[in-house]
Design a protein around this nucleic acid. Structure first.
Lengths: 338, 338
DNA sequence: GTTAACGGTGCAACCGGTTGTACAATCGCA
DNA sequence: TGCGATTGTACAACCGGTTGCACCGTTAAC
């Protein structure tokens, strides 16, 4: 009772239906200038008739491309996506590629097993390019990609990475972002700052903290730095802890806008007013930021644009372009929480 | 200054190096019984020598398979992965496939653009099978897959879904899980129950609630049902809200173990003891459950096994097996929080 | 000594497209 | 009328593997 498996129509059938040769049919469908309008019309009609779609395997072999780009994820997916910013970045990639005929697929390679499979498919040239979302780990795979000469884009700042001249790099300047947020606090005259950051092992978190510190120095003591998750619940809980300590503070720098939302809720519950008593600055310019009460001053990270950029660089490299490095800039979005 | 792009060695080169024909080389590498051990050894040595890996494009064309399985995600990735259970499920898939030569890739298809690209690649037969992680949405794609006869596994219970006879289905029985959790509460003599669930639009959440209700009836009034996120911070915040309401309750059913962890923290802060004053039951049997104080009684959802099952069914269908439906069973894990 | 059986190998076709080149038909122009 | 230029099409090779079948040299059996 299975659906009769319809075997897909081939170019030969289309050609026969249109009364032309395979080559003419191919050129007609690819809109070659050497084919007359009349013939093109006939071939297209025939193709539509039999529901023809060029087979990826045949096409890939002929043109030497699979038109698939792998988005490589070398950390556990749960960890990756607990940071909501990644989905924005990934959207940027798919958005950009949807203009082309390329398809992005996410390749998880956190375990050794997975890495081996991935390696194998890289060697087989299953993908035309690779975008590595978290190049801090899994460097054996990078080694393989380098050897194979697969066009590769690294997302994230790699200090002194040995492959600078082989791979392209895209990142936004997290330290600069921290700078902006901290400067805003300073300009507002805030002197006793608390930071509620994301996970401690996140490199972006470290960079942002460095940015904070460069501006604030001792106004942001070690004891006032809290590492937590990225969600509003995490911010809420962290702020509770801080309030319980009964230390004096007049500003909170947050690792994400959702953290900031939770922080504001907790502050309000404690009878503190934002921004009158305490200033709060978020990070990301997530859509939640504008909806907060008060509307959240935050640092905008051009994630979507970063995705666009990564995708475009990948496409260029497929066409033979040289590797490049591209730094995206942060921007302070002034609203009412400061 | 680019790395000289090493063009990959072909089978012909291996054959030449080993002094045999292409066909013999192919058979030797595929361990055909028709080739002598001696020759195999020679060919393998030659292959190793030039670092030969069969090209995916040529191979795919010849064998009619790409050896890539698409894991289709039709909701926004951020939403999907905010539910931590998915990563476990995905791990199950990759784990199982890593035994084979197949590679799973995640295909995001939430926007129309993305769906169109996906559709195109399905039609081109870029993938040998599809595992749909959230088949509740994006049914046009399912229609396409059905028409194309692409082996497809749906993960999730689809009541009265029209494609039952064409697609395979794998799901774990969420209602049964809710049943188990609620029964445990009832057996313990708890009568005033609060439920802190996941997001309201999640189908699994609805099924679990139905399971709770079937057992508890009016012991779980509507007003005591709270929808929130999946994280401990969310549970913490939700429990704060409940405590603020000053209603009487002696049991909390949680939508995830992380929610439960947050709930317990909040209860303790409020001076309530678990399980003496309040019983708490989690969901998932996440690794956090055993580490809670007190250790968390929870419902184990066999996510990893579900992933294994989905992967295996996909492989079987590729080999021509009929579609099947497979229901995974929940299990109550008794610990100390009840 | 001839032949059948058999193990080992190579030739060539095939998978499904794309593309260089040859060729036929049409046209313009002298 | 004859020529080259131009246009539209088809033939055939190619991408890089796999595989049906024919063929070769042994060895064993008669």
């Amino acid at each position: 009772m299975t659906q009769p498996v319809r075997t897909a129509p081939t170019l030969a059938e289309v050609a026969a239906a249109a009364g032309v040769s395979r080559s003419t049919a191919s050129r007609a469908l690819n809109d070659s200038p050497r084919i007359s309008e009349e013939t093109k019309k006939r071939v297209r009609a025939a193709a539509k008739e039999v529901n023809f779609v060029p087979n990826a395997r045949g096409r890939a072999l002929a043109v030497g491309r699979t038109e698939i780009i792998a988005v490589l994820v070398t950390e556990p997916l749960s960890e990756l996506f607990s940071d909501p910013t990644y989905s924005e970045f990934l959207s940027g990639i798919t958005e950009e590629l949807s203009e082309s005929s390329y398809l992005p697929v996410i390749l998880q390679a956190s375990s050794t097993h997975e890495r081996n499979r991935a390696r194998e498919h890289f060697e087989r040239r299953s993908f035309d390019a690779v975008i590595d979302v978290s190049p801090y780990k899994g460097s054996e795979l990078l080694e393989v990609l380098r050897e194979l000469g697969v066009p590769t884009v690294l997302c994230g700042q790699l200090e002194g990475h040995p492959y600078r001249d082989v791979f392209s790099t895209v990142y936004s300047d997290d330290e600069e972002g921290g700078h902006f947020a901290a400067l805003a606090m300073k300009d507002r005259g805030r002197k006793d700052i608390v930071a509620v950051l994301g996970p401690q092992d996140n490199p972006a978190v470290a960079d942002r903290l460095r940015g904070y510190r460069a501006v604030l120095g001792e106004d942001l003591p070690d004891a006032n730095v809290i590492y937590t998750g990225w969600n509003s619940g995490d911010g809420y809980q962290a702020m509770h802890q801080i309030l319980a300590r009964e230390i004096a503070f007049d500003g909170v720098l947050c690792g994400s806008d959702r953290i900031a939302a939770g922080v504001i809720t907790a502050l309000n519950e404690a009878g503190l007013s934002v921004p009158a008593d305490v200033s709060v600055v978020g990070f990301d310019d997530h859509e939640i930021a504008a909806r907060c009460v008060p509307a959240l001053t935050t640092v905008r990270q051009p994630l979507r644009e970063e995705g666009h950029m990564a995708a475009n660089i990948a496409l260029d490299m497929i066409k033979g372009a040289e590797p490049t490095t591209s730094v995206m800039h942060m921007q302070l979005i002034q609203r009412d929480s400061l």
